[in-house]
C-alpha cells in the first residue's frame, strides 16, 4: 500500500438519502492501466469525481502519492499530478484547439496571478501543445475553433489537455463514448501508448470490448458498491458482474 500511487480508503458518497458510492476501497500502482466499469448509475463518474476533487466524499479518504488529498481543492490536485478528462466534453469555446492545450501546458505560468501577469510569451507552451495534439492524432485541427469540430476530435482534445498537465494519474471518463468502432479502437490504442510513457490511467468505459482489451485490471461498480477487482477475463466471468449487467438494458460491447 505504501508504494501505491492512489489509494481509496472506504470512500462513501451520499447525496441526501441516495448513496452514490458505498465504502469503496482500492489502490492503483504507478503506471497501471485500470478500467472502471459498471451499469448506468453505478456511481463510476461520482467515484472519479471523488478522486479528482469535484465531489467531496461523505466519509473516507483519498491518498495520492502518499499524501491525503481528501480535502484538497480541485486545482491543487491537478498540480499534484492528477489529470482529468470529462465525460461531457468542455473545450474552451473562446479559444483555438491549440490554445486550449497550451493553457494546460502552461500550468507553471498560471500558478500565481503575479507570475501570470508578468509572463507574455506562449511559444513554448504552444509547441508542447502541438506535440500533444499530434500524439492524439488531431494535429491538423490545431488552429480551428472547437465549436466547428466533431465529437471524436473534441474527445481527443480533452485527453490532450489532460496530458498537458504532465500527470502521474490520468482519469478518463468515457473517452470512447460516441465514437464509432474505428475511432474508438484508435483512441484506445493512443491511451495505451500514453500510459506506456508514464502516467497511470483509470478509464471509465461502457465499451466493454475495448476496455477489456487495453486494461490489465477491471474494477466493477454496481449501485455504488465495488463488486469485482480482477483481470478482465476473471472479472467479466464473475457471477455477480454478469448479474449486474444482465437484467439491465445496455453495456456488452
Amino acid at each position: 500500500m505504501s508504494e501505491a500511487l492512489l489509494c481509496i480508503d472506504r470512500a462513501h458518497v451520499q447525496f441526501g438519502g441516495v448513496v452514490a458510492v458505498a465504502d469503496a476501497g482500492f489502490a492503483v500502482a504507478p503506471g497501471e492501466r485500470v478500467g472502471l466499469i459498471g451499469p448506468n448509475g453505478a456511481g463510476k463518474t461520482t467515484l472519479l469525481r471523488v478522486i479528482s476533487g469535484v465531489v467531496s466524499p461523505t466519509r473516507g479518504r483519498v491518498t495520492f502519492r502518499g499524501e491525503d488529498i481528501t480535502r484538497l481543492p480541485v486545482h491543487r490536485r491537478a498540480r499534484r499530478g492528477l489529470g482529468l478528462s470529462q465525460q461531457i466534453v468542455r473545450p474552451f469555446r473562446s479559444m483555438s484547439v491549440l490554445d486550449n492545450v497550451a493553457l494546460a501546458a502552461g500550468a507553471a505560468r498560471t500558478r500565481r496571478p503575479l507570475g501570470a501577469l508578468l509572463a507574455r510569451d506562449r511559444t513554448r507552451e504552444r509547441e508542447r501543445a502541438r506535440e500533444l495534439l499530434a500524439l492524439v492524432g488531431i494535429g491538423r485541427h490545431a488552429d480551428s475553433a472547437p465549436a466547428t469540430l466533431p465529437l471524436g476530435v473534441l474527445k481527443r482534445l480533452e485527453v490532450a489537455r489532460a496530458l498537458a498537465l504532465d500527470p502521474q494519474l490520468l482519469l478518463l471518463d468515457e473517452p470512447l463514448a460516441g465514437l464509432n468502432h474505428v475511432e474508438a479502437h484508435r483512441l484506445a490504442d493512443i491511451i495505451v501508448a500514453v500510459n506506456e510513457q508514464g502516467p497511470a490511467v483509470i478509464l471509465i468505459e461502457h465499451n466493454l470490448g475495448e476496455v477489456a482489451r487495453v486494461c490489465g485490471r477491471l474494477l466493477v461498480l454496481d449501485q455504488g458498491t465495488l463488486i469485482a477487482d480482477a483481470e478482465p477475463a476473471v472479472a467479466l466471468a464473475d457471477e455477480r458482474v454478469r448479474a449486474a449487467y444482465m437484467g439491465r438494458d445496455d453495456a456488452a460491447a
Binding site: V74, R79, A116, L117
Partner: peptide
C-alpha cells in the same frame, strides 16, 4: 493584461471556470 498569461487565464475563467479548475487554475484567486 489581455495579452499576458493573466489574460489567458481570465479568458478560460470567463469561458468555463469549472474546467479551468481542472487545469490547475486557482480560479478564486484570479
Amino acid at each position: 493584461l489581455k495579452r499576458s498569461w493573466m489574460g489567458f487565464v481570465f479568458d478560460s475563467i470567463a469561458d468555463d471556470e469549472d474546467t479551468a479548475q481542472v487545469l490547475g487554475i486557482d480560479v478564486a484567486r484570479f
